[in-house]
Design a binder for these strands. Structure first.
Lengths: 205, 205
DNA sequence: ATAGTAATTATGCAAGTGCATAATCTCGGC
DNA sequence: GCCGAGATTATGCACTTGCATAATTACTAT
């Protein structure tokens, strides 16, 4: 029996397998995401996964990395953008709670991996790094906005604002994903902006 | 070989097995939570689980029910309490983001089950019911507070406030659990109250 | 062309999985 | 005391799982 297959550059194949893993997790859950299921979904043989990843666990960690990238990528990209501090914060918020990030599938993936964080050091490390990066970007944005307002609050007060801001973003993202069918995305975004305007006592264009 | 064991009333045994299942999920993850692991953790034989639950899946759904009870129990209990609308809302918020609810273990359990909701109808049903109950309690509380303030806002505006309030609660709970070691619980609670005071433009004692 | 290299498949195994079944034991009612 | 009911254990089976191994194939450099 002649095995017929097409070769793919290493990088693409790896990315494809990670994407297939995410599909499996979203559709079948972590339990149903077996090496065989991922391989079948990617249209390759089982053994190929072990050729590209040291272990199934390794593939899962990479899938977690990709998931965080999907979630924090859009907002973090805003930071590099040109614009006033206020405008950037506004777009940062919108990018965090709407668009491709506000997808039930994404929440499901996130939840799957978060549940692994406390019991698997490899996941914990990824979580710590990426979570901090997002938090830091958020803090910087707040600092810039407050500076532009001429408000030089103490570090303590600034931290409070940062925590509250993050809570609104996280909470709206969560709610939006959990009831994506019922809630209008624009309304959701508007609520987010208004809420944060009140919290920080600012106006975001 | 004589098997020696102590009998337990059906209800207690069931509750114990559910608790053992939660322990396993928190310590080993959903993957490590096998029938054998739960039985070992509860100090009983494997077969006993099948005697008390129709299937492992059934046990998992019951464990999900228990988890939601752990999370929404304390705040929902506040609603039945005596006190002014403002005072009740304040305690409701505190019960939602501090105390036994603000536990990384609880978040981990919640995340595990939430990831099952989209792929398992049994979980989806439990989710829908319990989630709605919490949301409704929250809405009623807001309505009472606004009424006490003499503010008769339209249903649309009230819904916005409700969504924002929920977001702050969910977000603070999430953040608090994710970084429970770093954040002081009292500070967290204070931030929550202050944030919601600003959002609703009220004072909560 | 051709040979070497790495990607890919095919196959099998040892361990673990949920669950069915039958035997055994504990306890309450008489 | 003892007996029936059902809670509990012991055991095994069919199936799945991750992974190792060896054979096979496609691409690249020369």
């Amino acid at each position: 029996m002649a095995a017929s297959f097409r070769r793919a550059p290493d990088f693409n194949r790896r990315a494809d397998l990670i994407e297939a893993a995410l599909d499996c997790i979203a559709e079948l859950g972590i339990q149903g995401t077996t090496v065989r299921a991922v391989a079948a979904h990617a249209g390759v043989s089982n053994g190929l996964i072990r050729h590209h990843f040291a272990s199934k666990d390794n593939l899962m960690v990479e899938a977690y990395r990709r998931t965080i990238e999907i979630i924090t990528g859009p907002p973090l990209a805003i930071v590099e953008t040109e614009g006033s501090a206020h405008e950037k914060l506004r777009r940062f918020i919108l990018a965090s709670i709407s668009g491709p990030v506000a997808d039930p599938r994404v929440l499901s993936l996130w939840a799957t991996f978060i549940s692994q964080v406390p019991i698997n050091p490899a996941f914990a490390e990824v979580h710590r790094d990426k979570y901090l990066a997002y938090r830091r970007a958020c803090d910087v944005l707040i600092g810039e906005v407050l500076a532009a307002e001429g408000r030089n609050q103490g570090a303590s007060e600034r931290q409070r604002l940062s925590i509250a801001l993050n809570a609104v973003i996280d909470g709206l993202w969560l709610e939006g994903c959990l009831s994506a069918e019922e809630i209008d995305e624009r309304l959701q975004a508007e609520i987010g902006i208004k809420a944060i305007e009140r919290l920080l006592d600012i106006k975001l264009g």
